[in-house]
Design a protein around this nucleic acid. Structure first.
Lengths: 355, 355
DNA sequence: TTTTAGCACTCGCAGGCTGGGAGTGCTAAC
DNA sequence: GTTAGCACTCCCAGCCTGCGAGTGCTAAAA
């Protein structure tokens, strides 16, 4: 994508896209004539050339120009002014995160809320996850004489809770001993290691009781399930934020967005792809051939601490999205989240994403 | 509300409402003439009387009749056929819950999903909560040499996680000892009891360390916050389910519903009210004077185990809602959830809600 | 060769008009 | 009390129309 555009054509393309993003109406040659310092006819000629090059279109003869996917792409990569969040905004955001700093599972909600309000688009955030989950700690708590609550902490800090039926006459003391036993056995173990331990129950020293074996099975199943549902835990927010946009005048669009957000195109391709790459990813319209996304753009970034826990966050909006602002916002919040996680996990220094 | 309606008027009213619920178009006298076995003119006279009584309206002279709030109310209380879920449906639902029976926090999601799909409306579910939260168990886990993960289990089984900065050179052993100490002190304690303990740190036996005091403060704050956000944790689902209804042709409606669901009318009045009453509550249109709800109806029920943990679940839909089905669904799922919680908490037998 | 003015042409869109259809309300007869 | 008949009201989809916004093209100017 290195079209050899004259300076003037670049300026016109940029102006068209900026104006279209702002006003949501096709832009006319007249509109630009003034700021370009030439006549509308000249602008028309240039626009015509840009259309030839596949960067603009128009729906019918007497309509203004509108950017194509390619046009937006060129804009994002070569034309747009980077617009980092103001110091004031950065402070506000950081402050909000500071206030919930100890409240692990509020980070996700806060990130989504801030993203959507700052970028004026719908936000998506997946919780931070290790590539392979590892056992950290187990706690067994008697809820009553029939039920035990099992609290499982994974290495990256995720807490899972499950109940299991108690053997009759189980007392907390026994449970605590079992927990200690399992904790010592399973330190740092992966799913498969725990499965192996459960298999070899008899040979361990001291041998595992039947109950303890059940717990091991439960742990393995729980961790496995956790890994499997990898990306089913997308949290999203800010739908309302988007409904003001004129593209959502028809309800069909709302339906589209909802299905994309909850389980459609988001999971299958975009999130894994974002997890596998560095920096901020921008997907414009149907660039990936996914038809549901034809009219939408997505800005995503990975965040987290390498090797420990990473997640994905970003925004989804109409193709006519304020790219500079969205990109800055996503990038900034990704670094804030990474810093938080870095404080949590490590003495590691390479938490901040580059780009 | 005991209007003295003739049998025929009741039949006509019922037919009007049923047909309107089904077709979403005002119902004409013609439509009913046949099934009533009288001429359309007669039906018109009767309708006219029902309109006089405030049970029906029409928007302009040449339009069919439409129920008023009062009409719906009369229908719900005196006219409608109770339609319990079929045995087949009940089995399916029970089976789904059975599959996630050990996975406490999936219940909420499942309940919302099932509710919305079964009642074809948006579902809301609040997690089960004790009226006053009580301490159950604490666990302190060293994540690294700078951070401690605190896992707090409340009496009703809720698990809260928080991080706190570690003192330098803290080792897991010390943490475990602190946890044991605090666990023995705080058994069953309420927020205020824990606050008192923190105040009297020096006098306890053995005395609480500075770190342990910090943890106590943290616990108290966390529990307090938990009580404060009482109803901010509404989980909802099934927006898509509703968008097919013709009343959502205009986007404004979608916006309305979204704001009701996330933090508007739902919290303020309806949920507390549902928590305070037994059985299934039906709120039709603007019955509560809340203007945002003018065009919507809500069917809610409390669920849970008295004294241990209760929550609220229900559906929100257009005023033209399939009341019999919604009510049956809400009632059934409330009993299923109550049974689950009952298994979890108690030997108690009075878990099932009566109407 | 590039730019510009001028003009014809295209298209969308809001407004007004119209006819038909659906439904009621009333009246008078059964 | 019920019904047929009819006038009347109102909505709605379709059609036309005029206007405004923009373009594309051409021929002249720079």
């Amino acid at each position: 994508m290195n079209l050899d555009l004259s300076e003037r054509r670049r300026r016109i393309l940029k102006a068209v896209i900026q104006q279209y993003i702002e006003t949501a109406t096709p832009v006319a040659s007249q509109d630009l004539a003034r700021q370009m310092g030439v006549s509308s006819a000249t602008v028309r000629n240039e626009m015509s050339a840009l259309e030839e090059a596949g960067l603009l279109t128009h729906m019918h003869t007497s309509a203004g120009r509108v950017p194509t996917d390619t046009g937006y792409r060129f804009f994002v990569e070569n034309l747009m002014d980077r617009a980092p969040l103001s110091a004031q905004e950065q402070r506000t955001i950081k402050h909000q995160f500071y206030q919930v700093r100890s409240d692990f599972d509020q980070w996700i909600h806060l990130a989504a809320a801030v993203l959507s309000r700052t970028a004026h688009a719908a936000a998506v955030v997946t919780p931070p996850r290790a590539y392979e989950s590892r056992f950290k700690h187990l706690e067994l708590i008697a809820i009553n004489d029939m039920t035990v609550l099992m609290v499982l902490v994974l290495h990256e800090g995720t807490v899972k809770q499950q109940t299991l039926p108690a053997e009759p006459d189980t007392i907390q003391d026994q449970l605590s001993r079992s927990a200690i036993h399992i904790n010592s056995l399973c330190e740092n173990a992966s799913v498969s290691a725990i499965r192996a331990l459960a298999q070899a129950a008899a040979t361990s020293e001291p041998p595992l009781s039947g109950f303890e074996r059940t717990v091991l099975d439960m742990i393995a199943r729980s961790m496995q399930q956790f890994e499997d549902q990898m990306n089913e835990l997308i949290h999203h927010d800010g739908l309302l934020e988007m409904l003001d946009q004129p593209e959502f005048m028809h309800v069909g669009r709302v339906r589209e967005v909802l299905s994309i957000l909850q389980g459609g195109a988001m999971l299958d391709t975009l999130i894994p792809q974002a997890l596998a790459s560095n920096g901020v990813q921008v997907i414009i319209g149907g660039e990936h051939g996914r038809d549901e996304l034809r009219d939408y753009s997505v800005v995503l970034s990975r965040y987290g601490v390498d090797g420990e826990a990473t997640g994905v966050l970003g925004v989804l909006g109409p193709r006519r999205m304020a790219y500079p602002r969205s990109i800055s916002t996503v990038r900034y919040i990704a670094t804030v989240m990474s810093d938080l996680l870095n404080d949590l996990y490590g003495t590691d220094t390479k938490a901040k994403e580059e780009l």
